[in-house]
């Protein structure tokens, strides 16, 4: 046990039912990946609805998609990718016991997440202003084709659920930031940050698909 020889046989971060830190870390990571699997299938329902309605009326999706702002969508893509990079770097720093740098990267990730939500807020309020709302609240008249509200139902549900995940991710990042500042995470034990990172990258990955599907149909 080269890496744990400096610690006691049973370090304080090791829960009683695991025999060693490696077993604990592997278990936590596998659990996190299974959780990500459930997230993929949760979004899967919305992706399925998207695919079905688009295949039924492709022209409607093309017409309605013109109402979305490509520059804002692209900006948010860049913001989210950058936040993924800072998240990955935060984990790298905690692996190297650079707690202060790690905390700085986490704060940067939080800031990018906030920028993402602010941009989203402006997009939403513009749509609400125009009456481009889901389902029965839809009042806009500028789109040709039958049932344009379906597109906006799909749009708001997909981006809304994704937005909620960004919000939840910010909470989780705040939690590991607090743990980092308290020096509870270090090169021997950084599983919470690693798992929050996995979650954050999945949120990024889902947006990577949402962006072309919703904004770039043209």
């Amino acid at each position: 046990m080269a890496t744990t020889s400096t610690h006691s046989a049973h370090p304080d971060y090791l829960q009683h039912h695991f025999s060693d830190p490696q077993q604990q870390q592997e278990a936590a990571k596998l659990g996190m990946w299974i959780f990500l699997l459930t997230e993929v299938l949760l979004f899967g329902g919305l992706f399925c609805a998207y695919v079905i309605y688009r295949s039924w009326d492709p022209q409607l999706f093309i017409n309605a998609n013109k109402e979305l702002s490509v520059p804002l969508g692209a900006l948010n893509t860049i913001v989210l990718i950058t936040s993924s990079v800072t998240m990955a770097l935060a984990i790298r720093c905690v692996q190297l016991n650079k707690s202060k740098q790690s905390a700085a990267y986490l704060i940067a990730t939080l800031a990018f997440a906030a920028v993402f939500l602010v941009v989203k807020y402006f997009e939403y309020s513009h749509k609400i202003h125009l009456g481009q709302l889901p389902g029965q609240f839809y009042t806009y008249t500028g789109i040709e084709g039958n049932n344009p509200h379906i597109f906006f139902s799909v749009y708001f549900m997909m981006t809304g659920l994704h937005g909620l995940h960004v919000l939840g991710g910010m909470g989780a990042i705040g939690w590991v930031l607090w743990k980092t500042v308290k020096r509870q995470l270090h090169s021997e034990y950084y599983t919470p940050m690693e798992n929050v990172g996995l979650y954050w990258h999945l949120v990024d990955m889902i947006w990577i698909f949402l962006f072309p599907l919703l904004y770039l149909i043209g």
Partner: peptide
């Protein structure tokens, strides 16, 4: 993102299997 940011390229293969299973069954669903 999956291979490098999420470390799947370095990680235990079971984690990649879990992720691929998720995509496979999403495909079955749709």
């Amino acid at each position: 993102v999956a291979l490098f940011f999420m470390h799947l390229i370095y990680d235990a293969k079971i984690n990649m299997a879990v992720f691929i299973t998720a995509l496979l069954f999403l495909g079955v669903f749709i």
